[in-house]
């Protein structure tokens, strides 16, 4: 089972690298926001998978918190880019 879990982790890492490439290339700032939102979701999956690989399912708490922070951060950055202020 460990081999399949590590293979899935490597696949997620490849996807993260591709999205990071788009975040570097992205011509508009919206491309970058979209790519970083996708990277955040992939990071949640990565943390959950790594918890199972290392046999420490307590990592799921970190994944849960990261999912919430990721959503709020995306909306906040988007609001800042749109209106140039955060209130």
């Amino acid at each position: 089972m460990d081999a399949i879990l590590i293979a899935a982790t490597l696949g997620i890492l490849v996807a993260i690298v591709l999205y990071l490439l788009r975040a570097f290339l992205g011509p508009t700032s919206y491309d970058r926001i979209l790519a970083m939102n996708a990277v955040g979701t992939k990071t949640v999956i990565l943390v959950a998978l790594l918890g199972f690989v290392m046999d420490r399912p307590e990592f799921l708490d970190i994944a849960l918190v990261y999912a919430m922070i990721n959503f709020v951060a995306t909306i906040a950055i988007l609001r800042y880019v749109e209106r140039r202020r955060l209130d």
């Binding site: 293979a7 696949g11 997620i12 996807a15 999205y19 788009r22 999956i45």
Partner: peptide, 15 residues
Amino acid sequence: LGLGAVVAITGGVGA
């Protein structure tokens, strides 16, 4: 798990 990793890489290639 394998199907999920393949879908994730497909999304990255699409992006």
